[in-house]
Nucleic acid binder design. Structure first.
Lengths: 193, 193
DNA sequence: AATTTTACTTACTAATTAGTAAGTTTGTAA
DNA sequence: TTACAAACTTACTAATTAGTAAGTAAAATT
């Protein structure tokens, strides 16, 4: 038929949304099929195994992240502004839906994920960590950021604030994420080494 | 038969471990039955619905937490030491297993939890948050802690560090949690208001 | 024009799942 | 000692699940 050459992408996008809202274990091919008005087997045509879809979702996020890092406009920004863009684009943007970030969704159910997803997911988190640590290091050198720990430790702390900030915002108040976000920025401004 | 009057408790304990390691959606009554050498229906005898077991697990944790808060020995400790005990008892103790804390496990799959579990879980998180905020407030007054945000914000930040710290430790390095823990303490020592 | 490939649908299977109904055995109370 | 209740097991059901095999229609290739 080939009436719709974007079905595969629609499946990937909805798959990601379902992973972020319900988790990898808790979403089913039927959820996707019914929402996209296609049949179960159509999803299996594009992604024979559920783990194939999972890997595609993680890979898509890695690519999106790497494109952001290569974006010249992004790289012209100050360290401070790049941190803000990261917080808003990679994490805060999911606040409007009842979603968490992909890192938060997948790390919570890490032991039950298929090995191939675990491996891809490790790649993703280590890339984000490494980038954030280098941003913090550079920003500290330029006196934009102030913090007392190593850049690697501060990167871990900010990342965990983002991840669980979204999770907690879903349980209690939507504003909890913004509260945490503002707290991070305030500390980066005022801490002393 | 009544040969074992602790079966119910064993089910609750294993249920909690499974929720923390695999998640609420991803564990089944069969997992419990096979590990405890009992039958499926034996679990349904004690907990007719899966959500009944979920609620029991959350309630058990609330009680454990409240008993800690009422413990005279615990209350004689300094704010600094109470924070350390909380970090180690409520969170860090699960590091040895491939588990996260209950807050991290349940908040990640919050939207798919039965309503009755959601409500009980909200109680739990708000109690922890409130207690931590008051500890930080008191500790700041006594010059034990130093931080630039409100105690409520700092409580949120430390909590999210604990929650996602355990999640990330499972994905990357076990030591990530300790790194975050030590970072929190270092910042509390050295930040300026 | 004939053939093959793409992108599906129809129709299914086998496994896993929460949950139930009807027993069975043991301990306890009358 | 009889009745009853507690704590199960046996044996099931209905629903959901990932995954498959075979067919079909349109599009691209030859």
């Amino acid at each position: 038929m080939a009436k719709n050459n974007t079905t595969k992408q629609e499946i990937t996008d909805l798959g990601e949304e379902l992973i972020r809202s319900r988790g990898y274990s808790a979403f089913s091919y039927h959820d996707i099929a019914s929402q996209l008005n296609i049949k179960n087997a159509a999803i299996h045509y594009h992604f024979p195994l559920k783990e194939d879809l999972g890997v595609a979702v993680v890979k898509k996020n890695i690519e999106k992240f790497e494109e952001l890092l290569k974006n010249p406009k992004f790289n012209k920004l100050s360290e401070w502004d790049r941190l803000n863009v990261m917080m808003d684009e990679v994490f805060g943007k999911y606040l409007t839906q009842e979603c968490v970030c992909l890192v938060g969704a997948l790390s919570a159910e890490y032991p039950v994920l298929p090995e191939i997803i675990q491996e891809e997911f490790q790649q993703m988190t280590s890339k984000i960590r490494a980038w954030l640590a280098s941003l913090l290091k550079e920003g500290k050198k330029k006196k934009q950021f102030s913090f007392v720990t190593t850049p690697e430790t501060k990167a871990l702390m900010i990342l965990s604030n983002m991840i669980a900030g979204l999770q907690m915002a879903r349980v209690m108040n939507r504003s909890d994420f913004q509260t945490i976000r503002n707290g991070i920025l305030k500390e980066l401004k005022t801490e002393q080494s």
